[in-house]
Design a protein around this nucleic acid. Structure first.
Lengths: 195, 195
DNA sequence: CAAGAAATCTATTATTCTATAGAATAAGCA
DNA sequence: TGCTTATTCTATAGAATAATAGATTTCTTG
């Protein structure tokens, strides 16, 4: 009970940090901004975090973690390359609705982490890119994707197109599924061979 | 001659501001950082700019201006919709190589401008989006683009995919043309009708 | 209820930052 | 050379910042 309460409160603090970082950027946000959102004093935050930067690292970690989990099982499952790409796009965009602030901060503020504080986040992000690369490699090997495709460029295109929605998508106004579907259409048509 | 010298120096100051804003972000960059890069004192900058924010506005303006100019003549010219889209993509990505810092700052830091300082930049960006929307509208009307296309989503996809390169493209290592070509392939295949 | 632990607050420190005012230097020109 | 203007520097005001230490309140649990 003691522990559970702490965890709940810790989550609230993290939510506030994510929201403020997302709105103002890491350097534009002050620890007082975060405290104000919670109705507590600036210094009280340091009961939960040793530094502002560690708070950023935690937010980024949650932001990236949502991506990786689903993609692993998509790769393990069966179905055509096109279906897997569609599933991967939906998997990538879903957290933009459910964990909007966390994803935004990961995408736009993670570069403010130092090598020390950002190591785990970077590692997880690399893992995700490797999974995506494997999806594309298998698609090319299966003859489903254009053979002349630059795999690295293609992976960056998938990520770039999906991520771009974070700049304008508002989870308060409508779902992300239709957007994911439309983007999957574009990517599948754009990447697969045309018979 | 007196005027020309001022303009040249002003450009150097702006280059330094663009570089520092691009590297550290608007709030992460201090006026001292900019001055250090120029080998002058922090206070001396205020001979050229009334405020840090106005400097940002100038950088952003140059960043967005490069986009608009070319697209107008592309729309005016003739050729298929596919060719125009390819030209538009190349037009969009070219400044990412030639004015890398300016474009990066426009894309990633313009939200730090207030309504007052950012009005012209916003206006120019809106103008650009309208031109792109017209290109797509004409493509749909001509039957070249998929009729079921959500025009707004399609425009955001074009912009999002192109802009994403700013996160990883390094003008010091290779040109942008091949990337633009590959992205144009994806977008054209993804947006046009498949017979 | 009472003791101990958890959570928050008050108060402060040492920096850092933007912007300004006025002095000093450099450059252009009669 | 000496006058004038352009540019940069020195010095500082005033506000904001992250983080710490210790006091105080609130909660949990026996």
């Amino acid at each position: 009970m003691r522990e559970a309460k702490y965890k709940r409160r810790y989550g609230e603090i993290l939510d506030a940090a994510a929201a403020v970082f997302a709105e103002k950027g890491y350097h534009g946000a002050s620890t007082k901004d975060i405290a104000d959102r919670l109705g507590i004093r600036q210094g009280s935050l340091y009961y939960y975090f040793p530094s502002k930067e560690v708070a950023l690292a935690e937010v980024c970690w949650i932001g990236v973690d949502g991506f990786v989990k689903g993609l692993q099982s998509i790769l393990g499952g069966d179905g055509s390359t096109a279906k897997k790409i569609r599933a991967a796009v939906q998997n990538h965009m879903a957290p933009m609705a459910t964990r909007h602030h966390y994803v935004k901060v990961f995408l736009k503020e993670r570069h403010n982490l130092t090598a020390r504080t950002g190591a785990e986040v970077t590692h997880r992000a690399d893992e995700y890119e490797r999974l995506l690369d494997r999806l594309l490699a298998e698609g090319i090997a299966a003859g489903a994707l254009r053979a002349n495709l630059d795999r690295r460029l293609a992976a960056l295109a998938v990520l770039g197109l999906c991520n771009s929605a974070i700049d304008w998508f508002d989870p308060a106004r409508g779902g992300i599924d239709r957007i994911a579907d439309e983007y999957a259409d574009i990517l599948i048509e754009g990447l697969t061979v045309t018979p």
